[in-house]
């Protein structure tokens, strides 16, 4: 944990900018008027009660919501100043730049090696030596190499839940993303593995921007530099972004009463 000693400077560039974003599933208005700047090479946490649209918001960034029929977004989301909803933007290219880790570890039913090599192969890397190099490097970055280096041919699904999640992280790292979205990555795995993944996030943010959705406020407090608190005040109404600040400020001196209620309520 010592690795994340230096705080992200105030003048750190914005990696993702969101302005006045509204989001709909068919007739259901899920999110309204979200405006937020995500800092580069920092960890940003989205917290809030279940069903408050955190995951929906997260999936806007790599346009994963495009896969859901009837889902649509209004407003601006830009990556490095480029509007990602513009017609010229191919979501397939976008997802190479913005990797995603899911709540349920989801290794493909193939070998550990093939799991990690999947992304590079999609991009046309086919030389064995080059793939070997990428696979080893990615597994090392995901702190999984030592555990699997002798069993690379074994199925990814034979690993433990925590190892599977790190395999999924290695799989994402293999395509060298600029941003990694993590949708409650630790909610389905054991505590020891959670520790490993949290350490990993601290190491990875030297090079990539991480956004994590979490139910666990202690986790948000431990791993993130910035925190955004989402809330759906009335059932059926769209959720809003209540407060967004440096994690240290948000947890110690929240500006909004609702944020305070939420974090103190949970901490008892």
């Amino acid at each position: 944990m010592a690795l994340r000693a230096t705080p992200v400077p105030d003048n750190a560039p914005n990696k993702i900018t969101v302005k006045e974003l509204d989001f709909f599933y068919g007739d259901f208005h899920a999110l309204t008027d979200i405006t937020v700047d995500i800092k580069e090479k920092a960890v940003t946490a989205f917290i809030g009660p279940s069903g408050c649209g955190k995951s929906t918001f997260l999936r806007c960034f790599n346009r994963m919501n495009d896969l859901i029929p009837g889902a649509r977004a209004e407003g601006l989301v830009s990556l490095d100043g480029q509007d990602i909803f513009e017609t010229g933007v191919d979501p397939v290219d976008l997802r190479r730049r913005i990797g995603m880790i899911f709540q349920q570890p989801n290794p493909f039913p193939m070998s550990i090696y093939d799991n990690v090599a999947f992304g590079p192969r999609l991009q046309g890397v086919s030389k064995k030596a080059e793939l070997d190099e990428i696979v080893q490097h990615s597994l090392e970055r995901a702190n999984l190499w030592k555990e699997v280096k002798d069993i690379l041919g074994r199925g990814g699904l034979t690993l433990s839940g925590g190892q599977q999640q790190r395999l999924c992280i290695a799989r994402v790292l293999a395509v060298e993303p600029e941003v990694m979205l993590m949708d409650e990555p630790c909610s389905a795995i054991d505590p020891t593995s959670v520790q490993k993944i949290e350490d990993l996030m601290a190491e990875l943010k030297d090079r990539i921007t991480i956004i994590i959705v979490t139910h666990n406020m202690q986790q948000a407090a431990r791993v993130s530099d910035f925190t955004a608190f989402f809330l759906q005040e009335v059932a059926g109404d769209p959720a809003i972004l209540v407060e967004y600040d440096r994690t240290s400020n948000l947890f110690t001196s929240p500006k909004d009463r609702r944020t305070e209620d939420y974090i103190t309520g949970r901490f008892g």
């Binding site: 790599n62 994963m64 896969l67 397939v92 290219d93 976008l94 997802r95 190479r96 990797g99 995603m100 899911f102 989801n106 290794p107 493909f108 999947f118 992304g119 999609l122 991009q123 999924c168 799989r171 994402v172 395509v175």
Partner: peptide, 9 residues
């Protein structure tokens, strides 16, 4: 999703 998330068509 894992596959789409890696930029697969």
């Amino acid at each position: 999703w894992g596959s789409y998330g890696l930029g697969a068509t």
